[in-house]
Each structure stands twice: as structure tokens, then as C-alpha cells.
């Protein structure tokens, strides 16, 4: 019969070490940095498609300047979306996601850490690249700062919203287009206020209201999207 002393080798219930948020971030970042090609691809996609645009609509500077904010935003949206498909994929396939759902730590933080790292390697570089693309597309000077700021805020929301779609479709074999189909309509408000802010900046109006709304959307997405994604992960793991 077991005695209390003989249990000393067994961990008492609460002491099972669950990784903290910082540790989660570190591991995710490590994993992402080891697959550098996956980081580069969305950025290259972003640049390549935008380089094709003048070939499609013509090189007139006025025309390019007019469509630049919208096109840059739409392409940033697509680049985020394309990279999102693989967000939970390898973790799902190797069973890590299942282990995470069993962990005493809320799934919310695991999703938040993954999404934060996704933004660090896609949204942030996209925002940093955007002035260069603005230059190529003849974006008026007044728009640069706002383009950068709006992409910085907006792409974080896009990462969070996309995480819900990625979690819902992770159990499917080829979710690519389906993911786009279910996530795109949810991107609409971010797109509208993102381009709206840049357009306002170009036209010489104040754009702080639009940025504030983008920040509000981000706050709402940060609070709710990981919850929804966590629920979706539990559904997907039970497949």
C-alpha cells in the first residue's frame, strides 16, 4: 500500500511547470526563426504583387498615387492571410496542440503568444516595408507616416482575426482557399479604417480618429480572438 512518503517522487498537483507567457513567446520565436523561408515568403509576395501593379494599370504617377493606399493595404491583408494557414499546422500535426489543450495553463495565452510572433514576423516587417512600396507607387508624402502606423496597428488585428480561421481549419488537409473565404469578410472593418486613415492623411485631414478606431479594433481582437481561436482549437483537436 502506498504511503504518503512514497509519493515524494511524484509531482504534487500544482507544481507541474507550465511555461509562462515569456517562455511561450521565446519558443515560438525560436521555431519561426529556424524556418526563415516562411518569414520571407509573405514579404516577397507583398513586394512582387505590388511591383506587378503598374504593369497592370499603367505607370501614370497620378493613377498610382490614387490607388496606392488601397492596394498596399489589400496586399498586406493577403500576405498576412497566406502566411496564416501554417500558424497552427505543425503543432496540430505533431500533437503539441493537443498537449497544450491539456495543460493547466489557459489556451488563450498560447494562442496569443503564437499570434504575437506571427505579427512580429509578418505584420511588423510589412509595415516597415510599406514606405518603400509607397515610394514605388508614388504615394504622396503626407501618407507615409500614416501608412506605417495604420499597418502597424491593423496588421496585428489581421493576425488575431486570422488565427481564428487558422484554428478552425487546422484539421483540414488543404484549408488555403477556405481559410481566405471565412476570414476575408471579417477583415473588412480593418481594411476600411486602415485605408481610410491613409486617404485622410493624403487629403490633409486629421487621421487620429481612424487610428484610434484601429487601436480599438485591435484591443477588441486581442481580447476576443484568442478566446475564439482557443475554442476552435479544442474543436479541431477533437477530430
Amino acid at each position: 500500500m502506498p504511503s504518503v512518503e512514497s509519493l515524494s517522487g511524484i509531482a504534487p498537483a500544482a507544481s507541474r511547470a507550465a511555461p509562462g507567457f515569456g517562455a511561450l513567446l521565446k519558443v515560438e520565436l525560436l521555431l519561426v526563426l529556424r524556418k526563415r523561408a516562411d518569414i520571407a515568403n509573405p514579404l516577397l509576395f507583398f513586394v512582387t504583387v505590388l511591383a506587378l501593379l503598374p504593369l497592370g494599370v499603367g505607370p501614370e504617377p497620378e493613377l498610382l498615387a490614387r490607388v496606392a493606399p488601397g492596394i498596399i493595404w489589400v496586399m498586406a491583408l493577403l500576405a498576412t492571410l497566406l502566411s496564416q494557414e501554417s500558424l497552427f499546422r505543425s503543432d496540430f500535426e505533431d500533437g503539441t496542440l493537443e498537449q497544450v489543450t491539456l495543460s493547466p495553463q489557459p489556451l488563450y495565452f498560447a494562442v496569443l503568444a503564437k499570434t504575437a510572433v506571427h505579427w512580429l514576423v509578418t505584420g511588423l516587417p510589412l509595415a516597415l516595408l510599406s514606405p518603400l512600396l509607397g515610394l514605388m507607387l508614388n504615394l504622396p508624402a503626407a501618407g507615409y507616416l500614416c501608412l506605417f502606423a495604420s499597418l502597424l496597428l491593423g496588421s496585428a488585428s489581421l493576425s488575431l482575426i486570422g488565427a481564428v480561421g487558422a484554428a478552425l481549419t487546422v484539421a483540414l488537409r488543404r484549408p488555403g482557399l477556405l481559410l481566405a473565404l471565412i476570414v476575408m469578410p471579417l477583415y473588412v472593418p480593418v481594411l476600411i479604417f486602415g485605408t481610410g486613415a491613409v486617404q485622410a492623411a493624403i487629403d490633409g485631414y486629421a487621421y487620429s480618429a481612424q487610428l484610434a478606431i484601429l487601436a480599438a479594433l485591435l484591443a477588441a481582437a486581442a481580447a476576443l480572438a484568442p478566446l475564439a481561436a482557443a475554442g476552435a482549437i479544442r474543436i479541431s483537436v477533437d477530430n
Binding site: A11, R16, S90, E93, D94, G95, T96, E98, Q99, L102
Partner: peptide, 14 residues
């Protein structure tokens, strides 16, 4: 779950 160690068909090795 606090006292659980589960190893499934998918092993959970990254």
C-alpha cells in the same frame, strides 16, 4: 489534468 501525463498517437514532439 494537473496530475496527468498524456502521450497520444501524435506524440507532441515539435
Amino acid at each position: 489534468r494537473e496530475s496527468l501525463l498524456f502521450i497520444g498517437h501524435r506524440a507532441g514532439v515539435r
